[in-house]
């Protein structure tokens, strides 16, 4: 039994990502969407937290593109997915936890 967590707030303004990563189990997935995608930028404190976390971490590509964050700025260990990937993740996990 595993959970998909979604985070939609910037990690530089709210602690949602930090708290989410701290509450996620190793077989969970964390998907960063909307302003949450800023957490995927490499070389930041958020990226270090992601690297240290056990859960698998994803980021929604369309939200990255909207914000002018190119995929080469995305930290290693974070996978870029589309809306179809979002749906697949939701289907693969038994529950979705939206960190609002």
């Amino acid at each position: 039994m595993s959970i998909l967590h979604t985070v939609n707030k910037s990690p530089f303004q709210k602690n949602d990502l930090t708290s989410c990563l701290a509450h996620a189990n190793d077989d969970d997935a964390v998907l960063m969407i909307e302003d949450g995608v800023y957490g995927a930028i490499k070389g930041t404190q958020a990226a270090s937290q992601i690297a240290a976390a056990g859960a698998t971490v994803f980021v929604l590509g369309v939200d990255l593109a909207a914000r002018g964050i190119s995929e080469d700025k995305v930290a290693d260990g974070v996978s870029v997915v589309g809306y179809d990937g979002f749906v697949k993740l939701a289907a693969e996990h038994h529950a979705v936890n939206s960190w609002l």
Binding site: G61, V62, D63, A65, A66, R67, G68, I69, S70
Partner: peptide, 8 residues
């Protein structure tokens, strides 16, 4: 940031 593309 440059290159913003909100089509999606």
């Amino acid at each position: 940031t440059k290159g913003q593309d909100t089509a999606g």
